[in-house]
Design a protein around this nucleic acid. Structure first.
Length: 141
DNA sequence: GTTTTGACTAGGT
DNA sequence: CACCTAGCCAAAA
């Protein structure tokens, strides 16, 4: 629970933005920040998620906010204090049909190209030179 | 009160 | 490509 009203407003904006992420897709903290109207605070998005209530009776909680669809701009599930949380996130994503690959360093990455929400959050614009790019869908803003 | 931390990012070296 | 830095700002210490 945020202490100030201001922070609470931010939390709410973030949670609502996250609820817009479609099933089976992922997006970045930065993109959520922009969508919520606070383009300079991707970091605080992480804070909001960290404090997402488990309490199912709360207006926003870990079952009505698809927290698992938010990963970092590099397409990787961010490391956090509670390591098991990462595993759980990967698990839930796979359950949605999102392919999560774990590399040697224990980094769990998602192929943004295939599962990214908005194309503009792609970490890099590879493949545009040879035209294998699968082009974007449309979005609204 | 003040200081440190951190589920981030874009840009610079 | 691998690091480093500066912004960021709510929580926790």
């Amino acid at each position: 629970m945020p202490r100030s009203d201001e922070a609470q407003a931010f939390f709410v904006a973030v949670y609502e933005a996250i609820q817009e992420v479609p099933y089976g897709k992922v997006t970045s903290y930065g993109h959520i920040a922009k969508l919520a109207g606070y383009p300079t605070r991707p970091r605080q998005v992480g804070v909001a998620l960290k404090h997402l209530p488990d309490d199912q009776s709360a207006k926003f909680n870990n079952s009505n906010v698809p927290w698992q669809r938010v990963i970092n701009a590099q397409g990787v599930i961010s490391q956090r204090e509670i390591t098991s949380g990462m595993t759980r996130q990967a698990d839930v994503l796979r359950d949605e049909g999102v392919a999560v690959d774990t590399d040697r360093q224990g980094q769990m990455s998602v192929d943004f190209k295939e599962f990214g929400w908005f194309p503009r959050v792609l970490p890099s614009r590879e493949g545009e030179d040879d035209g294998d790019e699968d082009e974007e869908e449309e979005d609204d803003e």
